[in-house]
């Protein structure tokens, strides 16, 4: 098992190398540079050129890339062009809000998706099932930005129960922090719940026709025991993959929700950096997101072995 994990971690290196090269080329070949932006629209060509020199933006691309790679090998992600702060520090300061939002949204999603899917399977031949299918389809189809605007209008403006926007770190005030995160987490959860509940329901329906389920029933187990102990657990594998993708996606930053609720997370940071052409930050954040994806996928693979002991990695 340890060998498997080590192999997977080592396989990160070529993936990250390719990601870094592609990202580096794409952003450096995109027109626009931070010097012109910093100096404003009145700036003369000479002053822009001068600032470009100071920021090291006039070096040939491959030299800039090599410099960056050299630093990267020593664990240094470089410095932001516009704030001179270390990219590592910037990412760390923005990851907190994103993690909080992700965990909160995940908890809400699972709290709603699991019981709903179980009930839908339990009452599969009643009116509840088509209602469930319609609702889950609605959840998947509603665009997050539209839902965000609608919920803000209802629950923050018309009935001012929740704040319109803003972020309070949980470390500063835990409950106030959760209160500020509630609406954004509900929006993310709405979209993800539909998908996860649907996956879980389909998985359970598939498991329900299997021989082991028939055996369980034949043993005389109650329907609830059959559903929870045999059907549900067996339906978890495909669901775990979807949950893993969701977590990786959310940790990579949810640009729309973070922008609408002014949450200073990774998604917001990435968008701001792209507009500013803050190359080191863009490169750092994309690498970070790539690492998150690979690690979450690794974690999902490891969870498989816990869920289904037949799966072993050698």
């Amino acid at each position: 098992m340890l060998r498997y994990i080590a192999t997977r971690v080592v396989s990160l290196i070529p993936i990250l190398f390719i990601v870094s090269l592609i990202v580096f080329l794409i952003i450096h070949l995109t027109p626009g540079n931070p010097a012109a932006l910093i100096l404003g629209q009145d700036a003369s060509r000479a002053s822009i050129h001068q600032l470009e020199n100071k920021l090291g933006l006039n070096e040939p691309l491959f030299i800039q890339y090599l410099d960056w790679m050299k630093k990267l090998l020593t664990g240094d992600l470089g410095q932001s062009v516009y704030s001179s702060e270390s990219v590592k520090g910037i990412i760390i300061s923005h990851i907190g809000p994103t993690i909080n939002l992700t965990v909160f949204a995940l908890v809400l999603t699972l709290l709603v998706a699991i019981p709903t899917a179980v009930i839908a399977v339990w009452k599969r031949n009643t009116l509840l099932d088509p209602i469930f299918i319609s609702l889950s389809l609605l959840g998947v189809s509603i665009p997050a930005f539209w839902l965000a605007i609608l919920l803000v209008l209802i629950f923050a403006v018309t009935f001012p129960i929740f704040p319109v926007a803003g972020y309070v770190p949980l470390s500063r005030n835990f409950f106030n922090g959760l209160y500020h995160l509630f609406l954004p987490a509900v929006i993310l959860a709405c979209v993800e719940t539909g998908l996860i509940a649907r996956m879980l329901r389909d998985g359970m329906l598939e498991a329900i026709g299997q021989n082991y389920t028939k055996t369980a029933r034949a043993k005389g187990l109650s329907e609830s025991a059959v559903l929870l102990k045999h059907v549900f657990v067996n339906a978890l594998i495909p669901t775990t993959t979807v949950v893993g993708t969701m977590v990786a996606g959310l940790l990579g930053g949810t640009v729309i929700v973070e922008t609408i609720f002014t949450i200073p997370g990774i998604g917001q940071l990435l968008i701001d950096s792209i507009y500013r052409r803050d190359y080191p930050v863009i490169q750092g954040v994309i690498l970070f997101i790539a690492v998150i994806y690979v690690l979450v996928n690794l974690l999902v693979d490891l969870i498989y072995t816990l869920l289904d002991p037949r799966i072993r990695y050698n």
Binding site: I149, V152, L153, A156, V157, P160, P163, V164, A165, G166, T259, I260, F261, T262
Partner: peptide
């Protein structure tokens, strides 16, 4: 100075006293 890029959020925030 709170950086709020979305126009609707700026308006709604003002209306609700944020």
């Amino acid at each position: 100075y709170l950086i709020v890029k979305d126009t609707t959020v700026r308006q709604n925030g003002l209306k609700t006293g944020l």
